[in-house]
């Protein structure tokens, strides 16, 4: 029991360091996509922390929260990626003369 708690506490120390460095990346950017990636890592850290708490106290209450967090990270990064793509796309694509004319914003957003 004591050995389990010692191992978990070492893991908590790793998690604290991870969250601090990820928050540095989340604050500094430089682009929105960097912040999306950093937010995904923070969600992963949260999942590990919830699992550690469940492992120490031997209860299964946190498992639905883990499920919701993983799906939330998926939906969040997906929608943010689509948002950034729609916003930046018209500026970055260039159409050469040999290609068929492509409208400034394609309707399917790809």
């Amino acid at each position: 029991m004591i050995a389990q708690q010692v191992i978990i506490m070492i893991g908590v120390a790793f998690l604290v360091g991870a969250v601090v460095m990820t928050l540095i990346r989340l604050a500094r950017g430089p682009s929105t996509l960097d912040r999306v990636v950093a937010a995904d890592v923070i969600i992963a850290v949260l999942i590990v922390a919830l699992a550690m708490e469940a492992a120490i106290n031997h209860h299964a209450t946190s498992i639905p929260i883990i499920l919701v967090l993983s799906l939330l990270g998926f939906a969040g990064s997906l929608s943010m990626a689509r948002f950034v793509a729609d916003r930046d796309q018209a500026r970055k694509w260039d159409v050469s003369t040999s290609a068929p004319r492509r409208s400034e914003r394609s309707p399917e957003g790809t």
Partner: peptide, 20 residues
């Protein structure tokens, strides 16, 4: 189980080092 959780935490730490 605690050792598996520790490996998961170490992966999170490695990911944050890579992020920075």
């Amino acid at each position: 189980g605690a050792l598996f959780l520790l490996f998961g935490a170490m992966l999170c730490f490695a990911a944050s080092v890579g992020l920075v």
